[in-house]
Amino acid sequence: MATGDPPQRIYAAYQPAIELAHALGVSDRLAGTAFLDAKVLPEYADRQADVDYLPSLPSREALLQANPDFVLSGFNGFFAEQGADSSVGTRASLREVGVQSWILSPLCPSEDGLTDQSIDPATVKVENIYRDLRDLGALFGVEDNAEAVISDMRERIATVEKQVAGVDRPSVAIVSPNEDGTYGVASGIDFGSHIIERAGGTNAFADLSKKRNIDVGAEELVKRDPDVILTDACCDASMTEQDARPEVDAILHDPALSGLTAVENKAVHPFLFADRSAGVRAAHSVELVASVLHPDRVG
């Protein structure tokens, strides 16, 4: 997608893009980062601490002030056309001022300038992440790093899949209590559903496919009665799984949910919004979910 020498000043926006840059070992080339949903994985924390970070997305002039030659984004709304507000302008308009760009393939748009809604999330698998790693590795001139990350992820996920092969698959719901008394759940087309499958479970809301996140009432949760509940905490650059504790407690102490299998068995576990987005975090997420679903098999 870009040409010429490997980029030297990379601006990374959104969690998957920032973590991917660290994973590829180009942290020292980061001209700036913006918009994390959670604390980066522990192995990248030191490197992230040395990089400029903005909690919200930069304006076009703030981006240009950072003097990047390459912009790596986890979502394509960042490159929406004029008039869209969390945008720094289309990729074509950035190219005109000498800035190349890349959108991670799980969310790659069919056309420049569109917002996030233009994307079909149902097709995203771990393999998409590998392809991005390989392509960006070539672009940044760090092919070996890319291959190492890919084989590490492959190996970790394969190990989990071997450990959970043939087990009973508990039903799992990724649940976020909303302020209005409804509950946001991850549907069948969300990447979270893919993670649950690989970790030896089934998404209790797998049949829903209209959009990634669906808001249901307490009655629907009681009706579907998941065996395990994962929370969906978000969004702060310092957030770790520990910070999801309040959500766990809220679900455990909700009188309307008191009859749920997951609540009776205290099978409500901290999980993050960032853990279910498609990126280098996937191996970590699959391991985490598997250890919760099958503690006897996965250490």
Binding site: E179, D180, G181, T182, C234
Partner: peptide
Amino acid sequence: DEYRFWAVGSLTRAG
């Protein structure tokens, strides 16, 4: 993200 759910009226909030 939390506020947008407060801002729509709802009867399922108050116990």
